[in-house]
């Protein structure tokens, strides 16, 4: 197994050092570089081509979400793990929309970071248990309050299967080859799933899956 190269971006020096220490301790991980602001992170990501960027949201010059967007669009092979103080859905949703694959709360970084990095390298999403619990609770509360029937029931078995794969971060193409379907069929399924669940994008779909406990 090759070494996973990691770029750590956080403007808080003690925090950053702590993170590096934590990562270095793991075998198979290598801290390729450190950055203390968003612009520098984008820069370094371009030069170092790390497998994973561990990214703080609140950073000077360019915030972590914007930096994620730029890195993911320029270097799709790089996965971004957001490490944030913010637990609210609006941050999670925006980070996902920007292309992040994992969202961790800083206070659980010490226990979850290693797991999250392994997950994103394997092409999966990962959320801090605190985050997924919160999203799930909100969802349950909404369903209870509105008394709306669970729209998940509307999906066919095939659609549920595809939903899970998409939520785990697979592309349409990967899904089509995994399920032996044509790319066109997968796209149609995807459109139906989004319609039935009243969602508009894959990040929203991921969030939905987390809320439902389909992925964690």
């Amino acid at each position: 197994m090759s070494v996973i190269r990691i770029l750590v971006a956080d403007d808080h020096t003690v925090m950053r050092t702590g993170l590096c220490l934590l990562l270095e301790r793991q075998s198979g991980f290598e801290v390729a570089g450190q950055a203390d602001d968003g612009r520098k992170t984008v820069d370094l990501a371009g030069r170092l081509m790390p497998d994973v960027v561990v990214m703080d949201i609140a950073m000077p010059h360019l915030n972590g979400i914007e930096a994620t967007r730029q890195i993911v669009s320029r270097h799709p092979q790089t996965s971004v793990v957001i490490l944030s103080m913010h637990s609210d859905e609006s941050y999670v949703l925006r980070a996902l929309k920007a292309g992040a694959r994992a969202y961790l709360l800083k206070d659980s970084a010490e226990t979850d970071l290693i797991q999250a990095i392994h997950a994103v390298v394997a092409g999966k999403s990962f959320f801090s248990p605190g985050i997924s619990r919160m999203l799930l609770e909100d969802y349950i509360r909404q369903v209870q309050q509105k008394g709306v029937e669970d729209s998940y029931e509307l999906l066919t078995t095939r659609e549920r299967e595809i939903l899970q794969l998409l939520a785990e971060g697979k592309s349409n193409k990967e899904v089509s080859s995994m399920l032996n379907l044509s790319l066109y069929t997968v796209e149609t399924h995807r459109t139906h799933i989004l319609q039935k669940l009243n969602l508009h994008s894959v990040p929203e779909l991921i969030l939905y899956a987390v809320r439902k406990g389909i992925i964690s």
């Binding site: 808080h12 003690v14 925090m15 702590g18 800083k106 206070d107 970084a109 010490e110």
Partner: peptide, 12 residues
């Protein structure tokens, strides 16, 4: 942030 850093360092 400092408290979180403390947390991580304690782990380290």
């Amino acid at each position: 942030q400092s408290l979180t850093a403390l947390l991580i360092d304690a782990g380290n």
